[in-house]
Design a protein around this nucleic acid. Sequence first.
DNA 1: CTAAACCCTAGACCATACTCTAGGGCAACC
DNA 2: GGTTGCCCTAGAGTATGGTCTAGGGTTTAG
Lengths: 148, 148
Amino acid sequence: MTYTIKEVAEKTGLSIYTLRFYDKQGLLPFVSRNSSGYRAFTTGDLQLLKTICCLKDTGMKISDIRQYITYVMQGPSSIPERRTLLQAHQQAILAKQAAIQKNLQEIEFKLNIYTSPEAETLVNQELAVAQAEKIANDLPNPFQAKNA
Amino acid sequence: MTYTIKEVAEKTGLSIYTLRFYDKQGLLPFVSRNSSGYRAFTTGDLQLLKTICCLKDTGMKISDIRQYITYVMQGPSSIPERRTLLQAHQQAILAKQAAIQKNLQEIEFKLNIYTSPEAETLVNQELAVAQAEKIANDLPNPFQAKNA
DNA sequence: CTAAACCCTAGACCATACTCTAGGGCAACC
DNA sequence: GGTTGCCCTAGAGTATGGTCTAGGGTTTAG
């Protein structure tokens, strides 16, 4: 039993275009062709494709995924290289997660302001300070004029 | 006291090109120009720019950041819209964080295999299964021939 | 007053990751 | 045996987010 490209697209959520694009980019050297030249995905292929999606969804570039897949195609001799590559990626993900966490807190802080009962007062204060700063520096006021 | 574009680039880590690009994209309507037509960034502008970076670094698209900034320029009347926009973004970030967390676990699982003393055995087993599957389906074996 | 070091705009160019079109072959049913 | 639906490749096109160049003005120190 093998799967057609259409079936794999449905299973993975990737488009047929994307699957063919990945193949062109050298991400799918493990997918064999049948006698008609059609791609025939085995369940093992699906497993590897899942790994590719995992790397892609965590922000790995196609060129690096290709490197990883190349290692896999080389067999067990490339285990140290695979480990190095994945560890580097793991560190990159952790760093990004931490950065996002910090930014998330900033956003929560903003949301707290916007949700508070004094939201309007606080926002007006900020605006007044910003406008005063423009004037103090002899600059045009870019904020919307408030017509009474 | 205002800052030149170069100083802001140094402070934010964005390139001068990127700052001008953001301005072109309508992300910096709050930055005024001095009498020579040069951008003059106030400290309030830096604060807003920091918010822009926060949104960008958490994956918000430029068009959505522009929408947010447009709301800010409108003053306190747009507080409900700002809140809606930021809440949606917050949810998007949380969902992405959760997805990354799952993928991270997959990567850790792979790394455990590659780090274990039986790594070679396990990888060889996987490879053997994959190759058997190709043969069982009358497909060419795409894996590297192992020369003894 | 001039050279170095800035600033500006418009618009071309680039990288990444798709997405689609054109042109053509294979498979399965009526 | 023809129509429908799926498969293929090559290559053009798109979206996003920058990055850089050309041509030209400003500011500052010698």
